[in-house]
Design a protein around this nucleic acid. Sequence first.
DNA 1: CTTGCCCGTCTACTTTATCC
DNA 2: GGATAAAGTAGACGGGCAAG
Length: 384
Amino acid sequence: MKFVKRKKLVRKSNKLINAKENTPLTALERKLMLYSVSEVNDEGKVNFRIQDLYGTSKLNTSHYRNVRKAVENLLNVKVVVEEGDVSDEDWRIKGMNVFDVIEASRKGGSISARFTQSMIPHITNLKRNYTTYLYEAVSPFRSDFSIRIYELLVQGVDHYSKREFELEELKSKIGISQIKTYTNFNQIRTKVLDKACHEITEKSDIDVTWDISGKKGRRVSHITFFMQRKTASVERSTSDSTKVEVKVDKQLEQQMNTMKGLGLSEDQIRLVLQMKQSEEKLKDVEPEVVESTTLFNEQEGEPFKLEQTSIHLDIVVEERKSRLRERLIGYKVAPELVEKVVEHTQASKESGIWKHVTYLQKNPNAVDNPAGYLTSIFRNNYGL
DNA sequence: CTTGCCCGTCTACTTTATCC
DNA sequence: GGATAAAGTAGACGGGCAAG
């Protein structure tokens, strides 16, 4: 059987993304944590190879030494999430440990871990108010702050063009509120903000800058990040593209003809035009609420968001595949067969697979044995 | 005068590249 | 594959300076 390397998707609840952390993490520690999130099963357990974490098979003693240290430190990581509305009068917070157990073995070359019960709802079976990104998007980052800030900004990047933080709040989110060095704003400027913005812009799919946006006396009280996708995104208002209306004026008509000349399909042209519209909307939007970042339509297999950057196409495809996997396993289709179907169809709408899955969902009593029904479809339609 | 930003320097640690 | 050098990063500290 052909081995297909899957992209790692990190999916976390928005509450967890916005959580406060008790300690700064090194880049390796955070990568270990995020890699675990991308691989976690429904019971909160995870098992992977150390070489996959590093993305290389060439590991030497310092790699193992660092993993050992990271494992020890990660057991001390605690996060605090806001549970209710955030106000002075009525608030609810929940503090929790991240990991129950982490085991690493040099000889076995593997790490296995179990997240705490409290963490599980924030990293598995998320249906809404979550944020997804590729582990591969953050793995090139060398600075821990880059990873954490990327996470905070990618959460809102398709909805807002900027996000403001109260400085102390930002410090607590990235786990540096207790560190002496960062009572000095200039250290925050050079070691945290400049470094992270530079690295994120250089190595990821979003451009980020920042500026001081509030002062109390001479003290910096607020800072604002300005972010946008390197290639702007577009949303379909529904999964049925024929319902999308785009105003066409003379100038647009001309642009459409140019695009036709470039060989774009009508559907693609419509998306590009929408992209331009949503770019207009993005300008100067107040970033007060960045709570719901449900990136994908739950009903249909079709993502309603298309990205031109390869990284986001990857996210769309991987997200679609992973949703198909979950559905098929839910119908008790054998895991090996699930994997064959996912790879064969790429979980695309064109393959026709979603028609059958949606049929089962909408007519739960129509078929006695969904697994059998699906298996015969896989055999007849795809020869599997 | 006090406070907080700015700048430079130093040390310890992590990651990557290179050599054996 | 392992050791080590080189490059990059985190964090601490102290002095200068000017806004409040």
